[in-house]
Deep mutational scan, measured.
Amino acid sequence: SHCAGCKEEIKHGQSLLALDKQWHVSCFKCQTCSVILTGEYISKDGVPYCESDYHAQF
């Protein structure tokens, strides 16, 4: 499978399933500020955001 963030193949190591896609753990980050999302996040149109950036933009 391929990472939804960087589009590279996910080989051995940690990956996560979010928004119905596979991601490298380090690629699942806020679209705006690039903080790596480990806990709470909000998505809009399949794109992840941290809570503060989501509320600031939408």
Rank of each mutant, 00 (worst) to 15 (best):
S1R: 15
S1G: 11
S1M: 03
S1K: 14
S1L: 05
H2W: 03
H2F: 15
C3W: 00
C3V: 00
A4I: 15
A4W: 12
A4F: 15
A4T: 15
A4Y: 15
G5S: 07
C6I: 01
K7E: 12
K7F: 09
K7T: 14
K7C: 09
E8M: 13
E8H: 14
E9K: 09
E9W: 05
I10G: 02
K11N: 06
K11R: 10
K11P: 14
K11A: 12
H12L: 11
H12F: 11
H12Y: 07
H12N: 13
H12P: 14
H12E: 15
G13Q: 13
G13W: 06
G13M: 09
G13E: 09
G13S: 10
S15D: 15
S15E: 15
S15C: 07
S15R: 07
L16A: 07
L17H: 08
L17V: 12
L17Y: 05
L17W: 07
A18G: 10
A18F: 07
L19D: 15
L19W: 05
D20N: 14
D20I: 02
D20T: 10
Q22I: 13
Q22H: 14
H24W: 00
H24D: 03
H24E: 03
H24Q: 00
H24I: 00
V25K: 15
V25I: 10
V25S: 14
S26I: 07
S26W: 11
C27W: 00
F28Y: 03
F28M: 05
F28K: 03
F28Q: 00
C30I: 00
C30Y: 00
Q31R: 09
Q31K: 15
T32E: 09
T32L: 07
T32G: 11
T32N: 06
C33H: 02
C33A: 01
C33K: 02
S34N: 12
S34Q: 09
I36P: 06
I36S: 09
I36H: 04
I36F: 07
L37C: 04
L37D: 03
T38G: 10
T38E: 15
G39A: 09
G39T: 15
G39H: 07
E40M: 04
E40P: 13
E40T: 05
E40Q: 05
Y41I: 04
Y41A: 05
Y41E: 04
I42N: 08
S43N: 11
K44A: 13
K44L: 08
D45A: 12
D45W: 05
D45K: 08
D45I: 04
D45F: 07
G46R: 05
V47S: 07
P48E: 02
P48C: 03
P48S: 05
Y49K: 02
Y49G: 02
E51R: 10
E51K: 07
S52K: 11
S52A: 14
D53R: 03
D53V: 02
Y54T: 07
H55A: 14
H55L: 09
H55R: 13
A56G: 12
A56I: 06
F58T: 15
F58P: 04
